Amino acid sequence: MPLTDIEIRNAKPREKPYKLGDSLGLFLLVKPSGGKLWRVKYRIHGREKALAIGVYPTVGLAEARRRRDDARQKVSDGLDPSIEKRRDKMRAQMQAATTFTAVAAEFCEKRKRDGTKGWAPATATRSEYLLSLLRGSIGHMPIADIQPIDILAAVRRIESKGQLESARRTLQLAGAVFRYAVATARIPSDPTRDLRGALTTPTVTHYGAIIEPKRVGELLRAIEGYDGQPLTKLAMQLAPHVFVRPGELRHAEWSEFDFEDELWTIPAAKTKMRKDHLVPLSRQAIAILKEAHALTGPKGYVFPSIRSWARPMSDNTINAGLRRLGYSSDEMTAHGFRAMASTLLNESGKWHPDAIERALAHGDSDRIRAAYHRGAHWKERVAMAQWWSDYLGELSEA
């Protein structure tokens, strides 16, 4: 006789498991623990088997009968419901592993470990952030199901907020993820390839930089009078002397510095060109670093976050310090110290352009030429580093 909801609700646990039969192979297994499990018996290829189809009360009587009927239909079609259930589970697992977000995460991990071409930490952080902007739109979708219209709608959502460059870069990164999916046999082609030109082209803007000697002196004096966080002041004081990329300065660790040899070795993993970059240190730079050493040395980051010394200073700290001094982003930025050094060193006429380029860690596509210049201009770079710091001192006192 078929079961009723009242019978099921009133079924009490016993010392041993027992069954309450319904109809057409459906039964409820009542466990000693009180759990009530739906099962359906079926016979296929001469063997009797049982399929688990849910737990009561999550799966009620009507739903259990519907699932029983589905299982019986599979048997009628020559399919084993137990095997099909395992296959469905595997398909769901594979689908979860091939959502856009999952493939993007896999792609980012590969790019971070990509040998000499691997992403620098700052690049990885920025790229992962931009790809995260797609989570709410295409992130949950299986990558094979994503169409060009889905991607276009997702990046236009970013564009509509006025973030034109972020939208453009996010589309580029999405394309890289799709091409990675092609290379790993998940999809046949990149659906972003036909979206070129679909977004508004952002106006190219350059980093704000002060390059007039008189204004450089004013800036240096302003930094000297900075009354905010001591580490922020020291970072702003050091930046013009070493003119490395802001991310390299923020991620600097004490283990990279050799005061005796007056040398800072930035490891390849932290540089844009994925090569070790050697920075000769002037007397002034070492004096600033020793002040910082008294605050944060001898291990870890030179300029740690004020919230946690396990993390480097925020990428906005120096810019925020410059804003506090009254300099707008159009006037001066953390990156602007590089343009300042490049402009004034070249205008001095004292140094070979290749020595200046090497000091700025700009790449050279010719490996033989690059190796030659690295050796040929080292002594000149050491002399240039001290001259530059002395010149900055003259400007700040003018």
Rank of each mutant, 00 (worst) to 15 (best):
R113Q: 10
R168I: 15
M236A: 13
D114S: 07
E248Q: 02
E224I: 06
K290I: 14
Y391K: 11
G228V: 05
W309K: 15
A62R: 10
L392T: 03
K31V: 15
T205H: 13
G217H: 02
A167K: 09
A120L: 11
A341Q: 06
I6N: 14
Y301D: 14
V55Y: 14
S23K: 07
T203K: 15
L234H: 00
A339D: 11
Q73D: 14
A292C: 01
H352I: 11
G78A: 08
A383I: 15
L322I: 06
I286M: 10
N10I: 11
T265I: 14
A334D: 09
K350Q: 11
T98N: 11
D88R: 15
R221E: 09
K117A: 12
H377K: 12
F303M: 05
E260S: 15
A239F: 01
E7F: 13
Q237G: 12
A361P: 00
S396D: 05
S305I: 02
T201Q: 15
G115W: 02
H335Q: 03
R307L: 11
V244E: 04
L219G: 00
S132Q: 05
W254T: 00
P32T: 13
I288K: 00
P121S: 05
P148F: 01
L295S: 06
R307E: 09
L61D: 08
I266F: 04
K74D: 13
L199R: 10
E357N: 05
R324M: 12
I53S: 04
L130M: 01
R67D: 11
I288W: 07
A102V: 11
S189Y: 11
G300F: 05
R66M: 14
L173Q: 05
S23Q: 08
M90S: 10
E357T: 06
R47G: 09
S82A: 08
H241A: 13
K214W: 14
D364K: 09
Y301E: 10
L131E: 02
E380Q: 01
F337A: 01
Y180K: 00
D276T: 06
R168A: 15
M384D: 03
E84P: 00
L289P: 01
R274P: 13
H45S: 15
K270V: 00
P57S: 12
R193T: 15
F27S: 04
G162P: 01
